[in-house]
Simulated scan of single mutants.
Amino acid sequence: MSEPTLSSFSTALQRGPRPLPLFLEMLQTETADAPERRAAALAGLRAYQAAPRPPRPPLPDPIARSGRATLHAYAATGRPVVFVPSLINPPFVLDLAPDNSLLRWLARQGMRPMLVDWGTPEPGDRDQDIDAHVTQLLLPLLDAVPEPPILVGYCLGGTIAVAAATLRPVAGLTLIAAPWHFAGFGDEARARIAALWERAGPTCAALGLVPMEVLQSGFWRMDPARTVTKFERFGELAPDSPRAQAFVALEDWANSGAPLTYAAGRQLLECFFAADLPGSGGWRIDGRTISPDALACPSIDFVAQGDRIVPAASAVGLRAHHPVAAGHVGMVVGSRAPALLWQPLADWISGVPAAR
């Protein structure tokens, strides 16, 4: 059998990592002196593309809408806990599979978890920045909840949740792998992100949107060797094994997602990453400074110690913090997630007094 070539995969794959050309470029660089590794990674990529995919369970019917954003409840009764996901990648990482769902597990513990779905922006939404996601989309959803909920923000959703908790009374706030001090990403990573935006910004401005591939390429360049290695290893798994099925579900999530509005992408990359407005105390919405120091509710920060995407140095630094011995995504959906994050999160929520 002849060795698969890069060009054959660039045209043949209908489902694969996004952006695929960048993956192939990284593959060629990382395996330049190891053709056997290249063949193994390409075989793994082909196996991923051909893997069976059972249908995902649909989101529960929305209980509230605000523009394109919707709020979905995973139980009819119980303590309301609103999960705010990142604007990057879809929200279903919190409900990845029937047997790997933080939200469905919390519902079985007697809580009423709710999930924000940001929806898909159109070019006409280009001027809707992160501030507008808070005031125009998220706050109206929170206002539809009968009592002040506990907010749980994951990744950039945690940054956004701090703003919401500053502007609305909430019973409590939990941050999970949430960036705040963007200087904590380090000079090298921030320089790469600045260069990425310099190249992609004009096209994004013309589109009115920031395609997910633009941001994905930035994440991949943080650790290209790991991106290639995971496909090498996947090719060694039996396609119907639990590990293979878990890989496919997670990789499908990581390689999908709606674009950002142009204004949200610009604010994220220029005002947050470049200028570190949140971490420096310069982020204001409607004249109010957005700061964890202004929070009047119980709050806790779950910080992933092995996070390559949102380094621990970028965390808010709340007095109450819980280190998690996992990575950015593994802390939520990894095999040890129930013990490392789910149960400690449920225990903390159970100890938060009801809002008056």
Score class of each variant (00 low, 15 high):
V329I: 12
P52G: 12
A183G: 11
R38G: 13
A206Q: 15
M26R: 13
R199N: 12
G279R: 10
E232P: 13
A315Q: 01
F23H: 13
T229E: 15
L175V: 00
I309T: 14
A69D: 12
Q216I: 04
L138H: 09
G257D: 09
G317V: 05
R319F: 06
L24F: 06
D33L: 09
V332T: 14
I176K: 00
D252S: 07
P344W: 03
P54F: 07
R112V: 03
E270Q: 05
G184V: 06
I130G: 07
A275W: 01
T261H: 09
A225P: 01
G265E: 06
L341F: 14
R104T: 13
R243S: 08
I193A: 14
A178V: 08
E30F: 04
V352F: 09
T159C: 12
L42M: 15
A64L: 09
G67C: 11
L94W: 03
R112W: 00
P21E: 04
Q343N: 07
A275T: 03
P298H: 13
H321L: 05
L196E: 02
A132G: 14
L45D: 10
T31A: 14
M1H: 03
I285N: 01
H328F: 11
A107D: 00
D347E: 15
E147Y: 06
T29C: 02
N255G: 08
R319Q: 14
L173G: 03
I150Y: 01
M114I: 10
V170K: 10
W197F: 05
S2H: 14
L137Q: 10
